[in-house]
Design a protein around this nucleic acid. Structure first.
Length: 604
DNA sequence: GCAAGGTC
């Protein structure tokens, strides 16, 4: 018998379908397994649910009050089976005993490599002589799967070492600093409450708090601008000078000279606005937060439901290029059943060319609809979450259609008038062809057209005024901007970025209000304290530094143990810095934790 | 009870 192990149920099922044609579903310890004939041999495809192993410290080391946190720098966590994966491990063992060959068909990324290794460990324990192969495919399509199984390879142990190193580093740093912070203010915390640190969650908090402080410390400055209504060829046009004056006096001195002028530039230039690139997870989350008012965690949860019900493709991806094996025409034909049938038919008739981004994660395609559906069908299928399910589904459909649509075409307009001492200008825009805006209204730009004037036209000012303005603080950090910054700094992955925001909310460090991230007093104090004594722990580049370091295991053959040791000793220094200021840290946190305690008991 | 990464 041939055993095939996939990272998720849907992939195991697809493999059975593509390699076997037909298959039978069977439940083993509650886990779906797909039996089929591969050529003339019996085969079973088993789908896991991600990792089956994890790192942990020993039971003794996990008694927080007994072990000084810094002791964790001196040991290494051990690899253990995950309790929540026990049924998968049982199914795996039972099938592996009877297998002659095992194919590790996990995702083609480093996590998939690590999970492959975990599977191999379990398999070897129950079947010493079984042959184990690794197969890699970049898309779950007939062609990719077929080719992958004809070209089995070996495990890439460097990738495995990299992932296991990150797990150990993250757990050690997380545990040491979480326990230190918690134990420092232990008596001030509620039952079950703790103060966490993590190399992703904490820099996220740092970004949000930094913005909040910039806003609070912002000193607005007055400045003065010149606005005017002028007449050209009988048209009345509002114009302004692209100059900020420090005082009203200076501005007025210039304003009084504005009488007669001449058109220096009159530009009417066609401009194309390209439709969006194929959809990846973080863009879905950002756009849903901005345009649909659904936060990133909820968006991913709903996308997951839509995926499981077969309406959209796998929602965790960083890829923005449609794979050549994806039949876009077929998807369009399927979408005729949905709410945009006329638009879809038009696309099919007129022909289309997809947009293309520049990233390919090697494991999953961009997010696209896999089934056409009407609004009422989605509402019926998703019951209570119908509203949001429809919003997200319809967004994915529209985004997909947009990527196949023509660009919008506008005329960019600009008039510049020379008044001798100063130039006034105005910009305008007129839509020539709506293009993809018809299906993607969120990017639609409104018209503010200018009349046609010509270089050399005479101009005279009808009204000139000096307007007082104030410089403005940066806006509160929106969830959408935060996600973009996390991506820029390499904090988290497509699948986890929303988790790191949510962790901060769960810990009481920040809130999400109307798409804006607002730090709480506790979050603010924690961040400020860390910035003060150990900025290295909270600056946004921490994560990228760790990622770069572990990448050295793959790229430069650096020994994982040496690398882990180096990182641990670096962070041990930060730990000692923090420890020196234990009293100050306690005093700072005391004020916010105490006020919370007072609020609870109702005494002030 | 700590993290971040898979996945449900």
């Amino acid at each position: 018998m041939i055993l095939i192990v996939a990272e998720k149920r849907s992939v195991a099922q697809a493999i059975a379908r593509y390699l076997g044609g037909t298959y039978k579903v069977e439940k083993i310890y509650g886990v779906s397994a797909y039996r089929f004939l591969y050529g003339n041999r019996e085969a079973v495809a088993l789908g896991l649910s991600g990792h089956i192993m994890d790192y942990d410290f020993t039971a003794r080391q996990n008694v927080w009050s007994w072990l000084p946190p810094e002791e964790l720098f001196k040991t290494s966590p051990i690899l253990v089976l995950r309790e929540e994966a026990i049924k998968y491990v049982r199914a795996l063992r039972s099938l592996a005993r009877k297998a002659e060959e095992v194919y590790l068909a996990l995702d083609a990324d480093s996590e998939g490599e690590a999970i492959s290794y975990e599977v191999a460990l379990v398999v070897r324990l129950v079947n010493k002589n079984v042959k184990i192969y690794r197969v890699r495919f970049n898309a779950v399509t007939y062609k990719d799967i077929k080719i992958a199984f004809q070209n089995p390879t070996k495990l890439d142990l460097k990738q495995v070492e990299k992932v296991f190193s990150r797990m150990q580093i993250d757990l050690t740093l997380g545990a040491v600093f979480t326990r230190f912070l918690t134990l420092t203010v232990r008596d001030l915390l509620e039952k079950g409450q703790f103060l966490s640190y993590g190399p992703c969650q904490t820099p996220v908090l740092g970004i949000v708090v930094t913005r909040e402080l910039q806003r609070r410390n912002f000193k607005p400055e007055k400045y003065y601008v010149i606005k005017a209504v002028v007449e050209i060829r009988g048209y009345k046009i509002e114009m302004s000078a692209d100059v900020r004056f420090k005082t009203r006096k200076e501005a007025e001195a210039v304003a009084t000279t504005i009488k007669r002028g001449v058109v220096k530039a009159a530009i009417y230039r066609p401009h194309y606005i390209q439709p969006p690139e194929p959809l990846e997870t973080v863009e879905l989350e950002r756009r849903a937060s901005r345009w649909l008012g659904i936060n990133s965690k909820k968006t991913l949860d709903i996308a997951e439901e839509l995926y499981r019900a077969g309406y959209i493709s796998y929602p965790r991806t960083e890829t923005t290029i449609y794979p050549p094996t994806l039949n876009l025409r077929e998807i369009l034909q399927e979408l005729i059943r949905g709410e945009h049938s006329r638009y879809v038919e038009e696309l099919l008739l007129r022909g289309f060319r997809p947009t293309r981004g520049d990233s390919d994660d090697g494991a999953h395609p961009p997010i696209y609809p896999t089934k056409g559906a009407t609004k009422s069908e989605i509402y019926k299928t998703f019951g209570k979450i119908g509203d949001n399910a429809w919003a997200i589904y319809d967004f994915v459909v529209r985004h997909f259609l947009a990527t196949l649509s023509p660009p919008a075409q506008v005329e960019k307009q600009k008039i510049v008038v020379d008044f001798g001492k100063i130039q006034l200008e105005v910009e305008g825009q007129r839509t020539i062809d709506e293009g993809y805006w018809r299906i993607y209204p969120w990017e639609r730009q409104s018209d503010r057209p200018l009349p046609r004037v010509y270089v050399g036209d005479e101009v005279h000012a009808i009204k000139v005024e000096v307007v007082e303005r104030e410089t403005e603080p940066p806006p509160p950090m929106s969830e959408s901007e935060l996600l973009a910054l996390m991506k820029k700094y390499g904090i988290g992955t497509d699948a986890t970025m929303q988790d790191h925001i949510y962790t901060n909310i769960k810990r009481g460090y920040m809130k999400l209000q109307k798409g804006k991230c607002i730090p709480t007093k506790l979050g603010e104090t924690l961040a400020i304290t860390l910035f003060q004594y150990t900025p290295e722990l909270i600056e946004p580049t921490v994560r990228a530094r760790i990622e770069r370091a572990i990448q050295g295991i793959v790229k430069n053959g650096i020994s994982p143990n040496r690398l882990i040791q180096e990182i641990k000793s670096e962070f041990e220094k930060y730990y000692n810095d923090l420890k020196k200021h234990r009293d100050e840290i306690r005093r700072a946190l005391e004020t916010v934790l105490n006020s919370k305690a007072r609020e609870r008991s109702g005494t002030y």
